[in-house]
Design a protein around this nucleic acid. Structure first.
Lengths: 226, 226
DNA sequence: ATCAAAAGATGATATATATCATATAGATAA
DNA sequence: TTATCTATATGATATATATCATCTTTTGAT
């Protein structure tokens, strides 16, 4: 029987560079893992054996720094590779991945992916491009945060969820103020304060977990200045 | 005539995965470019045609952010690929590279490297590993800076040059206070102040461009706390 | 050698951010 | 339900950082 991945978006990324007779083997190691919100998909320090791709849901990549602080590296949405960092350069994960929303991951044997790289140039090329784009995004994002101040950083995160994740100015904020703080490198109290200030200034509206961006332009100006 | 790259360290990275009959073509597009301190090797916005590797010297990768600020992304030392970021994912450089010290770069046609990826699995695998390691380093570094305060960030930079670049506690600091500021995302004045403070505390000694780390342990503690 | 520009240095002050304290609402477990 | 914990919220204060100003030193150009 031929592979069941017809509906999977991974197909558009990879299948174009894989010959039909390779698809069988390619799918053989593929399995799906469901993780509930709060559960870990990858634990820092674990040995890297898999190549993981997010099919559904939302996850966070984070690490525990030397002094014990939790730092969120980035968020992962469907079609993102959550195991791109370190996968090919290290033997142990130097970050953890946990589900923010209930999620489904596609898991492949890393050894199989490596075999594909060795034997299929087009696949390798494709993977390199995807990897590059992903790394560049993280780097540019983190650099952006580094030169912004508190207000710009918070605005940045809110706009990220509106634009990249939910593609709408109204959404349920999936992360806590604490997680925002861990992502942008500021204190929890100040994150809360800024969100309150945005609310009082009618830039956003908050009711429970729901968040609506009322004045997108002003929020973008807050993000872009300083 | 066979390739002249015997002495080049690139050999150890790449030649192991390249067959002898490929070396000829591999070398055909290779050329060396010398850049004097202060000169640009790559300009942000330029089209990406080359694959560049630093043979000698010291460079900085930097970008101009949306609001016009200059931000240093990382430094490049011999055997670093200075064109790893975006090379395979974009058509234009989104950063510049300029020489801090007089430098020599090895330049290859990107198209030729891409051809190698397509036809040589071992080479592709090797390149992916190198790329991953490089990206991970930048990401972890930038994340580290993001959660550190002024003193920790400055300590971090000084130790970086001591450990990674010069492998000695005494060296000529190759960059200005302004460049340190552009790298760590703090003001020039405060960078100067911190260096003065380190000097007054006998953690470092400064005479002209020369810098000596007198108390490595304390400097490392400064880096690691907060 | 001279001048101009940039880098380094430092003080005074304003602003931004963290920290500590406390309170309330919401979530979770017993 | 009650009790307990966590998240959100806000004020007061301490600390960290930026900004502005001024000065000296170094560097670079002519």
């Amino acid at each position: 029987m031929i592979c069941q991945c017809e509906s999977c978006h991974l197909k558009t990324l990879f299948y174009s560079s894989i010959r039909l007779d390779e698809i069988e083997g390619y799918c053989s190691s593929r399995r799906e893992i469901g993780v509930k919100a709060g559960e870990d998909l990858i634990k820092q320090g674990e040995e890297i054996r898999d190549f993981i791709y997010l099919k559904e849901g939302l996850v966070k990549l984070y690490r525990k720094s030397d002094n014990g602080q939790i730092q969120i590296i980035r968020f992962g949405k469907p079609f993102d590779f959550v195991s791109l960092l370190s996968v090919f350069s290290d033997d142990k994960y130097n970050y953890s991945v946990s589900a923010i929303e209930d999620s489904v991951a596609c898991v492949f044997d890393l050894s199989e992916i490596k075999q594909l790289i060795l034997t299929n140039g087009a696949f390798a090329m494709h993977l390199i491009e995807i990897q590059n784009r992903a790394s560049d995004l993280i780097i540019m994002n983190t650099l952006d945060l580094l030169q912004k101040r508190l207000y710009g950083r918070v605005a940045s995160v809110l706009l990220y969820f509106a634009i990249e994740i939910y593609k709408s100015d109204e959404f349920e904020l999936p992360i806590s103020r604490k997680e925002i703080a861990q992502y942008i490198g500021m204190s929890i109290e100040n994150v809360i304060r800024v969100i309150s200030a945005f609310r009082k200034d009618k830039i956003i509206q908050v009711y429970g977990k729901n968040l609506a961006i009322l004045d997108r332009e002003r929020l973008e100006r807050m993000r872009d200045l300083s």
